[in-house]
Simulated scan of single mutants.
Amino acid sequence: MRRSWVEQVMGMPVSVLARGSSAGSDAADTAVQALFTSLREVDRVFSPYKPDSDVSRLGRGEIGWDDVSPDVKDVRERCAAAGELTDGLFSAELPDGGWDPSGLVKGWAVERAAELLRSVDGLDWCLNAGGDVLVVCPSAEPFTVGIQDPRDPGRVVAALARQSGAVATSGTAARGAHLYDPRTGRAVRSRWLSVSVSGASLEYADILATVAFVAGDEWPAVLPPGYEGLGVLADGHLHATAGWGTG
């Protein structure tokens, strides 16, 4: 049996595709609805577009770090750790002195909320949050994850079969030059349109996809063991690391 859900949360479509005998159960529906609730709460706290979020209030100086929620403090520590892990290629500190953890929050929030789906016995599921995907298949039958063509959102440039783990993509095709290099404070200009990263954790795949895009032609070298990548050049050519397509 297959069943799907979709909602617009955190400014993006979030979908769950479930498969197996428990896909039609009340337990599955309850877990999915709780997942959406969790993501809506993250959006309330972290959105830089909502004037009453903790992030927005921090930016205006209305509250300090002692006043934010425990989740914001946790994410601040995770952002700092990601900066150390990537030798400064990742940073939530903006060139203008502000703080925007958006490059980490989505992967962290989705992976945390997905624990609710793991609690449903025997359920295969594929969770897609704006193109970043997390998969768990107790049946060992994989889902196929499509990598979107950054030149044409209606096409895919590659397909990746996954029994478990995550795939995240970063680039400028959809939102323009919104990424910046923390080392220079300037917007990233690259001959790469997107870089997708696969690995065990969606939080780290999301971070690493951003870092890889910032790194430009050196992006394969920034991926640690256990994570693989696929880059799409402006002329449509693809470059994959040696382990891409496994897992």
Rank of each mutant, 00 (worst) to 15 (best):
Y49A: 03
P138H: 10
Y180L: 14
T184K: 13
S15I: 12
D235W: 02
G176H: 08
S21H: 10
G20L: 09
L35A: 07
F36M: 09
D124N: 01
H178I: 00
E111L: 02
V6A: 15
V14D: 00
G226E: 03
G11F: 06
V232N: 02
D54V: 03
V156E: 15
L39E: 04
L94F: 02
W5M: 11
P13G: 14
R40F: 02
L223P: 03
T241P: 07
L58I: 05
V157P: 00
A92S: 14
L117T: 07
G231M: 08
V136R: 15
Y227S: 04
G122D: 09
S201M: 08
A240C: 08
R19H: 11
D43Y: 01
G61R: 07
W99M: 12
G11V: 05
P224G: 07
P142E: 05
V188F: 06
V110T: 12
A28P: 03
G59N: 13
K73Q: 15
S38L: 08
L116K: 12
V157Y: 04
Y49K: 01
P153M: 13
S69F: 00
Y227I: 02
M10K: 12
L202A: 12
A109D: 00
P150I: 11
R118Y: 09
L160W: 09
G98K: 06
S196I: 10
G146Y: 01
D96F: 04
R112V: 03
L230Q: 05
S119K: 15
S170I: 05
A166D: 04
D54G: 04
G59K: 13
R44P: 03
K73M: 14
T210A: 11
D96V: 09
M10I: 14
D121Y: 00
E77C: 14
R3D: 13
D74N: 15
Q8G: 01
D29R: 04
N128R: 06
G83Q: 07
L179T: 04
A221G: 08
D124Y: 03
S190G: 07
G171E: 10
Y180Q: 13
V167C: 15
D52I: 03
V157F: 10
V197Y: 09
I147D: 06
C79L: 14
A234M: 11
R112F: 00
S139E: 06
R76M: 13
S53T: 07
S25H: 08
G226F: 01
V156Q: 15
H239K: 12
G59A: 15
S170L: 07
P225Q: 05
V120H: 01
S91M: 11
D96Q: 02
A187H: 14
G130F: 03
G107C: 02
V120P: 03
V105P: 05
G154F: 10
E203F: 00
A129V: 08
A174D: 10
K106P: 03
V222Y: 05
F36K: 01
S119L: 13
L223I: 01
T144K: 08
V42I: 12
W219C: 10
D66H: 11
E62G: 10
D87H: 13
T37A: 13
V133R: 14
C126G: 00
V222N: 04
W192A: 06
I63G: 02
R19M: 06
T241C: 06
S170K: 05
A166K: 06
L39T: 00
S22M: 12
T246Y: 02
R40H: 07
T37D: 10
S91Y: 07
T210H: 09
D67Q: 14
P101C: 09
T169Y: 10
P70L: 08
A109R: 01
R186M: 14
T184H: 12
